[in-house]
Computed example of a mutant assay.
Amino acid sequence: MPSEGRPRAIDTAGIATPADVPPVALISMAHRRDAHVARTLGRRQDLGPTTAADPLAALALGVAITRGVLQEQRLLIQAAVEQGSSWEEIAAALDTPAATVRDAFTSPANEQAK
Score class of each variant (00 low, 15 high):
residue 1 M to R: 14
residue 1 M to Y: 11
residue 3 S to P: 00
residue 4 E to M: 13
residue 5 G to C: 09
residue 6 R to H: 11
residue 6 R to Y: 13
residue 8 R to E: 08
residue 10 I to P: 07
residue 13 A to P: 02
residue 13 A to I: 02
residue 13 A to C: 01
residue 14 G to P: 01
residue 15 I to M: 03
residue 15 I to L: 02
residue 18 P to N: 02
residue 18 P to W: 00
residue 19 A to C: 02
residue 23 P to R: 15
residue 23 P to W: 10
residue 24 V to F: 02
residue 26 L to S: 05
residue 27 I to F: 10
residue 27 I to G: 00
residue 28 S to I: 01
residue 32 R to M: 06
residue 35 A to M: 14
residue 39 R to T: 04
residue 43 R to N: 07
residue 43 R to C: 10
residue 43 R to F: 14
residue 44 R to K: 13
residue 45 Q to K: 14
residue 47 L to G: 12
residue 47 L to M: 07
residue 48 G to T: 07
residue 50 T to Y: 00
residue 51 T to S: 15
residue 51 T to Q: 14
residue 55 P to C: 02
residue 56 L to Y: 00
residue 57 A to P: 05
residue 58 A to K: 14
residue 59 L to P: 02
residue 61 L to C: 12
residue 63 V to P: 03
residue 64 A to H: 02
residue 66 T to K: 03
residue 68 G to T: 05
residue 68 G to H: 07
residue 68 G to I: 07
residue 68 G to S: 09
residue 69 V to N: 00
residue 69 V to W: 00
residue 70 L to F: 12
residue 70 L to C: 05
residue 71 Q to C: 09
residue 72 E to I: 04
residue 76 L to S: 06
residue 76 L to T: 03
residue 77 I to C: 06
residue 81 V to C: 07
residue 82 E to P: 03
residue 84 G to D: 06
residue 88 E to N: 10
residue 88 E to S: 14
residue 88 E to A: 14
residue 89 E to L: 10
residue 89 E to V: 06
residue 90 I to W: 01
residue 91 A to R: 01
residue 91 A to G: 15
residue 91 A to L: 01
residue 94 L to V: 00
residue 95 D to G: 09
residue 95 D to Q: 10
residue 95 D to H: 09
residue 96 T to I: 09
residue 97 P to T: 08
residue 97 P to F: 06
residue 97 P to H: 12
residue 99 A to Y: 11
residue 100 T to K: 07
residue 101 V to F: 01
residue 101 V to G: 05
residue 103 D to T: 14
residue 106 T to V: 12
residue 109 A to F: 11
residue 112 Q to N: 10
residue 114 K to I: 04
residue 114 K to Q: 03
